[in-house]
Each structure stands twice: as C-alpha cells, then as structure tokens.
C-alpha cells in the first residue's frame, strides 16, 4: 500500500462536475426540448422564438450572458469529468496527459464561451 497522505485536488473538478450535473438535470431536458424539438417543429413556442435578433438580445443582457455562460461551461466540465472516469472504467487510466486533454478542453470551451459572450457586446 502506498502512503495515502497527499491531499487530493479532486474537489475542484468534483465541484465543477457536481455543479454541472445539477444544472444538467434541471435545465438539460428542457433545453433539448426547446432547441431540438419545440422551435424546429413550431410546437408550443412561436416560430421566431430563437430568431437571430431575439437570441442576440438574450446574449447581450447580463442575465442571459450569465445563464449561457454557466450552462455551456458547467455542462462541459461535467461531461469531461464523466468521460474521464468512464474511460477509467473501460481500462484507459487517467494519466496526466489524459487529464490535461479532458479538463483542458473544458477550460478551453469555458474561455471561448466567456470571450464570445463579451464579444457580442452589452
């Protein structure tokens, strides 16, 4: 048995994973319904619900920005953590490289989302 005293840094990623999971459970299904079913098929919602001017206005409002940011970023952290651990179950064990790839991609998406949300203006 190896010494087991080194504090794990997992809480950072586990926290992001947990937050993303909570958010995915609350918003994921309804987002799939709105963006994938209701709007394209014009069910319940009006045809222009996700039109360019509406979505631009949404992304320019501070509350819309915040919502878009946490949904994109936290969903991503959740997904990459889950993929990393599922790979482990399948026998692909997380070395430093794989961790960097998974969490790095999540970080990249987070920063890209932030950059785009700032770029669309207020």
């Amino acid at each position: 048995m190896k010494p087991i005293n080194r504090r794990s840094n997992a809480p950072v990623f586990w926290g992001l994973f947990g937050a993303g999971g909570m958010l995915a459970a609350l918003f994921g299904p309804v987002l799939v319904f709105i963006t994938g079913i209701a709007v394209p098929l014009v069910l319940i919602l009006p045809a222009d619900a996700m039109s360019w001017p509406r979505m631009q206005a949404f992304a320019q409002h501070w509350a819309g920005k915040g919502l878009l940011f946490v949904v994109v970023a936290l969903f991503m952290w959740h997904a990459m953590h889950r993929i990393l651990h599922s790979l482990h179950d399948l026998g692909v064990h997380a070395g430093t490289a794989l961790k960097f790839a998974c969490y790095g991609l999540a970080l990249l998406v987070t920063m890209t989302a932030a950059w785009i949300l700032v770029a669309v203006g207020f």
Binding site: K2, I4, N5, R6, R7, S8, A10, P11, W14, H85, H88, D89
Partner: peptide
C-alpha cells in the same frame, strides 16, 4: 479526514 480527502480517498469512487 486526511485519509478520506487524500489521493487514495473518497474521490476514487464513481
């Protein structure tokens, strides 16, 4: 908790 929070600890559980 030093053991629970270590690299050998709870976060190995999926």
């Amino acid at each position: 908790m030093e053991i629970a929070g270590s690299e050998a600890g709870v976060f190995n559980c999926t």
